[in-house]
Nucleic acid binder design. Structure first.
Length: 398
DNA sequence: TAGGAGTTTCCTGATT
DNA sequence: TAATCAGGAAACTCCT
């Protein structure tokens, strides 16, 4: 993954311009750079370039998302477009910088037809939908309590009914949190649909409740966002202030990819294992410094139980995994990254990947909770120390 | 507060 | 070449 992206380039450029009163020549250079970045997105998988975590704006300093679309600058608009180019894997070669150059006010006045005309039938509706979300988000800040909740539900239903299921997941109002930390905050969960490209909003079913049970008491859990689950904070909470999404507190998060991207240059080799814990309030300035999760995550379901539950509840399965040999307990990941994301969601860890999940799975071999299935990718088998999946235990017919 | 359990994160190298 | 597997190492959170 590239360590630079259009968003950060633009943000940096904005701040630079603000502070120095940059000259026209430099603006032209910047525009050229922006166009080059847009072009760079075309023909390549933007999601690979930026990674899923970027699609909701973390780590990029996308402070424009904290302001009303009406007050976006032209650069903000461009940045916003580039975000969605990447999230929809849209071929940006069909976009010209000129057509994308407008401020937030002009953007908000555009009709659906105009959006489609400029951005095409794929990106246009997607942008329109997201713009509506941004606009509504700031309109909702003047509301509160039950009124907000009701409005949010209505809008959720409305947004959910929009047919954008071919796009990657983006946040609904159900994930908007408004209020200060001391007060009960509005936070409803989302449950992924069959292919995880969409999610369900609304009353939580008992089965869904299983998934979400660990999240019920996490009122302290604040905004964090990724491509699958995004929460916005209407106001900066103490936690969000130290989190990823607060523009004023954007940390120089150094990812694995970032380090790799600097290979061959003055690369600081990362020591093995997890970076050392940074004490509260201590700003070490270390390159390993990153937003720290200080949420209390009650230990609940273990990973293998989470996997088992997906398998034994077809309604939870959603095509993520399947039994290869039901009686022997052999199963296969069909959507490994999706399962990892769900596991990450459950553990409130947005950076979970299949690679990490599989490492945890491999630790189960020693404990005989899982057994190796040699030569078969994404295939595992429950071991003798696992339970709750056997046909006899469940009394199911196969 | 220490220590264990269960991950999580990062890494290198091998295999598919 | 990318994805996956394998496993070492160390840090993390939670629980007792």
């Amino acid at each position: 993954m590239s360590s630079t992206c259009l968003s950060s380039v633009l943000t940096h450029a904005n701040l630079t311009m603000y502070h120095t009163g940059i000259a026209d020549v430099q603006q032209q250079q910047q525009q050229q750079q922006q166009q080059q970045q847009l072009n760079a997105l075309s023909g390549s998988n933007a999601a690979h370039v930026f990674g899923p975590a970027y699609s909701c704006g973390i780590n990029t300093g996308q402070w424009y998302k904290q302001t009303s679309p009406h007050s976006w600058t032209a650069e903000n608009v461009l940045e916003w477009i580039s975000d969605h180019v990447e999230s929809t894997k849209f071929d940006a070669s069909t976009l010209s910088l000129n057509s994308c150059t407008m401020d937030g006010s002009a953007l908000c006045q555009m009709s659906q037809e105009q959006m489609i005309g400029i951005f095409g039938p794929q990106l246009g509706p997607h942008l329109l939908h997201n713009l509506q979300e941004h606009k509504t988000k700031y309109e909702l800040q003047s509301l509160s309590g039950p009124e907000l909740n009701e409005t949010c539900q209505l809008l959720d239903s409305f947004l959910h009914n929009l047919n954008f299921q071919n796009f990657q997941t983006f946040p609904l109002l159900s994930t908007v949190r408004i209020g200060i930390d001391e007060e009960p905050v509005l936070k409803r969960e989302v449950v992924y649909s069959e292919d995880l490209s969409t999610f369900t909003v609304g009353p939580v079913t008992p089965l869904q409740e299983d998934y979400l049970s660990d999240n019920q008491s996490d009122s302290e859990y604040s905004s964090s966002s990724n491509s699958l689950l995004c929460s916005f904070s209407g106001h900066s909470s103490p936690e969000s202030a130290s989190g990823e999404s607060d523009p004023e507190f954007s940390y120089p998060l150094i990812s694995k990819a970032n380090i790799k991207s600097e290979k061959g240059e003055t690369r600081l080799k990362r020591p093995r294992g997890r970076p050392p814990k940074v004490n509260k309030g201590q700003s070490s300035g270390s390159v390993y410094e990153c937003p720290k999760k200080n949420k209390h995550v009650p230990r609940g379901t273990h990973l293998w139980e989470f996997i088992r539950d997906i398998l034994v509840h077809p309604e939870k399965n959603q095509g993520l995994m399947k039994w290869e040999d039901r009686r022997e307990g052999v199963f296969k990941f069909l959507k490994s990254e999706a399962v990892a994301q769900m596991w990450g969601q459950k553990k409130k860890n947005n950076s979970m990947t299949y690679e990490k999940l599989s490492r945890a799975m491999r630790y189960y071999y020693k404990r005989e909770i899982l057994e190796r299935v040699d030569g078969r990718r994404l295939v595992y088998k429950f071991g003798r120390n696992s339970s709750g999946w056997k046909v006899e235990e469940l009394g199911v017919n196969i």
